[in-house]
Design a protein around this nucleic acid. Sequence first.
DNA 1: ACAAGTACTTACCCTAAAGTATGTATTATG
DNA 2: CATAATACATACTTTAGGGTAAGTACTTGT
Lengths: 120, 120
Amino acid sequence: MTAVKKASTIQENKQIALDLCPVTYVMEKIGGYWKPIILYHLSKQSKRYSEVKRAIPAITEKVLIQHLKQLEEDGLVIRESKPVVPPFVTYSLSTAGKGLIPVINAMAKWAIKERQGAFM
Amino acid sequence: MTAVKKASTIQENKQIALDLCPVTYVMEKIGGYWKPIILYHLSKQSKRYSEVKRAIPAITEKVLIQHLKQLEEDGLVIRESKPVVPPFVTYSLSTAGKGLIPVINAMAKWAIKERQGAFM
DNA sequence: ACAAGTACTTACCCTAAAGTATGTATTATG
DNA sequence: CATAATACATACTTTAGGGTAAGTACTTGT
């Protein structure tokens, strides 16, 4: 009889990790591929929905709006709509969202350096 | 007959986005949930495989090693193994990987502030 | 002889995320 | 009356990532 490998209780561990690791906490909010990219474009200036869309041609509308909603729920972006037609909706960074600008800028800086071969 | 909505050629767009948006470039390297967390733990000091594992109990071995390999391929971490038994493998940040420390630190800083309610 | 520790690997499954393709409300304009 | 523009919504499919569980090689310790 071989010993049974103890199953790691991943779900419990995740809660603990959230409390202990600050980066894990951030990943819960802006983890994934698209969110930092969206935040990057909003960091330069608030934008209408269609402007964000044009700024990120590689994203589909479904995914874009989905992330915008989540970012809004998480208190990182603010949605403002004017009751006109055609609709006029603006997205901007909240205070918490603006707090992420150093993160985004650090990323951009690294990318530029990397592509210049600064780390080789 | 209704006009057919022109399908967006997402794949081509992605290449363009990569060239134009620095954050997109970063996301191609460290996008996803786990990579920044791994880099965070390596940023404090190089670690043996088992140490990384213990530092991130919420990750499974499969996913951990998978990401370590990718990070190595992308030139962000360095793997060094001593030909002894039991195996002794150390992971550390490369120069490019170290270049990401400001990003990681900015994240950690934001997380701490957020949880203190600094953005409310 | 068998367990224990290290650094993996592999096969299989499952779900969440992403992509495709369309539809909708409203109003101004030709 | 059809069209265009904006900001979405939604049904459906596909894919990639992640999770589970187990196996492997080699040696030291009991």
